[in-house]
């Protein structure tokens, strides 16, 4: 047990984009609000604050999660990657580059969440995870190819009101094809 007991705030150390930040947080503070209001990492967006849009998607221990339903105090000890940690210096990640080139966004507000989600989609697919678009989920069926239909389903947790889905799917497909695993899947 931690010693916090009945107190309603705690000092937490959050590991974000490889950097440790120690700050006192009200237990009510979500990871999303901690990022935006306390750490000035405003790239992670608040679209609904209810887990119903995906705009606040970040990577927690390498897996995508909505930061609006993640309490900051419960995120201690986890490795968090936000959109600010995706590019390497001035070099955009291939997913980011594809979003720019194929116009995978309009207003840009859902975009950081889309990109974080897309990064995870590539990982999940590489790990052989099936999706609701996978006709046969049994392991003997083998990993599903990353078809447009698979991308659509896997990216459906990120709503885009501008209606950029068509180019988002193209951007994810292009980024997937640029990774070695992705290229193999495309051929297969």
């Amino acid at each position: 047990m931690s010693p916090a007991e009945t107190s309603t705030s705690s000092a937490v150390t959050l590991n974000i984009n490889g950097e440790k930040h120690t700050l006192p947080v009200d237990h009510r503070t979500t990871l999303l609000d901690a990022l935006r209001e306390r750490l000035d990492l405003t790239g992670t967006k608040k679209g609904c604050d209810q887990g119903q849009c995906g705009a606040c998607t970040v990577l927690v221990d390498g897996r995508r999660a909505v930061s609006c339903l993640q309490l900051a105090v419960a995120a201690e000890g986890r490795e968090i990657t936000t959109i600010e940690g995706v590019a390497q210096g001035d070099r955009l990640h291939p997913v980011q580059q594809a979003f720019v080139e194929l116009d995978g966004f309009q207003c840009g507000y859902c975009t950081p969440g889309q990109i974080c989600s897309a990064l995870a989609v590539l990982e999940e697919h590489a790990a052989g995870w099936p999706s609701a678009a996978t006709e046969d989920v049994r392991p003997e069926a083998g990993p599903p190819p990353l078809t447009p239909e698979e991308i659509r389903e896997r990216m459906s947790g990120n709503l885009c009101r501008c209606g950029a889905y068509v180019s988002i799917v193209q951007a994810v497909a292009r980024a997937a094809a640029q990774t070695t695993d992705g290229a193999k899947e495309q051929v297969a």
Partner: peptide
Amino acid sequence: EGRDKVTGA
């Protein structure tokens, strides 16, 4: 502003 939008800037 594309770069700013995909990097969260």
